[in-house]
Design a protein around this nucleic acid. Sequence first.
DNA 1: CTAGCTTCACTTTTTACATCA
DNA 2: TTTGATGTAAAAAGTGAAGCT
Length: 280
Amino acid sequence: MGWLDDGCNTGLVLGLGFTTTSLENTSNPADHNNNRLMKPQIKPLMTGFEPSLSLGLSSDQTYSQKTAMDGKRSGCEEPVVRAHDQLYRQASPHSAVSSFSSGRVKRERDLSSEDIEVERVSSRVSDEDEDGTNARKKLRLTKEQSALLEESFKQHSTLNPKQKQALARQLNLRPRQVEVWFQNRRARTKLKQTEMDCEILKKCCESLTDENRRLQKELQELKSLKMAQPFYMHMPAATLTMCPSCERIGGVGEGASKSPFSMTTKPHFYNSFTNPSAAC
DNA sequence: CTAGCTTCACTTTTTACATCA
DNA sequence: TTTGATGTAAAAAGTGAAGCT
């Protein structure tokens, strides 16, 4: 980051520091599985920012496109269901066939006995489609199902097995489907949060850049002032002190505060680590 | 140490919708 | 105006790894 350099070679360093905590913890504090959300791989955005953090501008476009699309879609909360989709849902109310074919072996291995039992009960269609093929079909959740899942997600971002079972029964879905929905929902939440964090960081970056420019300019002005005043040149550096109370530069001895060279404005000895408000 | 379970990150597949010729 | 092809975003689901008990 070039704008962090001390371009004047004055020995003065303008530092940039940034620490923050999670802006929004979407998980429920009471959730028994909350600690899992703090795994190392997701920590960076949850716990702090490294000074060397770089921002990718490409995400800007992605973000705007996504939000545009979101807006577009949120405008019609329930997308128009096409005729064939309607038919599919109506003719096959147990449309939760999903991808039973390809992943079946593994999933049956992974399923708990309870899940398998529910699977048998609520497996709402056979593995084969109406046309007899074994093509993978995917469920589109109904508006009601999505609403209930969302409601449940607001209460718990993760589900324990009992909650999962109950919700699956309530929605007439397989527990695996509920599990997948929550998994994807968590991922989307995190992605959204990441995009928001990215936007905030970009704004902070811009603000810090401006601040840096301003300070550099101020530094230049001070240097030229220094050059124009031989009095300072002849003064030993050690005799220039900053009065802690009036924050004026003075020399040794009384009357120093009355120096014609006293600072009339507060100097910007600003530490971004302790004064982040200047940036954000 | 191992097994079982859960979650996550990453990926693939399917669906819905917009646009254009 | 209608229709089919195509592109794209979102959602559902698959897979493997890692952490925990």
